[in-house]
């Protein structure tokens, strides 16, 4: 149930983000979610794409510092308290969230959230046992 996420190191200067998307486009890679965290000097771009292995390879060939890690994707009810419910479950089991971000697209009346935790296997078990919908990677990549 793990989803592969691509992280890219970016300097805070114009054109760098465009360069990443250009590399992905020319390799026919589709982006389904992204998030960027930055300081004044650098940022980390996080991407969910339809073909993580290909994306990692292409970006590395273009001299980017890249890593590929496991995250989980959950579908929650798109209404007040939806996210809170899922996070409370993790909180109760003392599973710390390193970062999370929302999906660009969504399915019907569900909102999709990407969560990065220390122990993704445990988190998946806990969430599923408590009735939270965790998306499979196949499904996520096709979004």
């Amino acid at each position: 149930m793990h989803v592969k996420q691509i992280s890219v190191f970016l300097e805070n200067k114009s054109g760098r983000l465009a360069e990443v998307t250009k590399v992905l486009a020319s390799n026919n890679i589709d982006i389904s979610a992204l998030s960027i965290a930055d300081t004044t000097d650098f940022g980390i771009l996080r991407l969910i794409v339809n073909d993580p292995e290909k994306a990692e390879k292409a970006l590395k060939e273009s001299e980017f510092t890249v890593s590929c890690t496991s995250v989980i994707a959950i579908a929650i009810e798109d209404k007040p308290g939806g996210l809170s419910k899922a996070l409370n479950i993790l909180e109760e089991k003392a599973i710390g969230i390193e970062y999370m971000y929302a999906f660009v697209g969504k399915t019907s009346d569900e909102a999709l959230v990407i969560i990065r935790v220390e122990d993704p296997c445990k988190a998946v078990d806990v969430l599923m046992n408590n009735g939270i919908k965790v998306l499979s990677s196949d499904k996520v990549y096709k979004l």
Partner: peptide, 11 residues
Amino acid sequence: ELIDGNMLEKF
């Protein structure tokens, strides 16, 4: 130059 991708997990 930052060359180690493993450093990207945590800001």
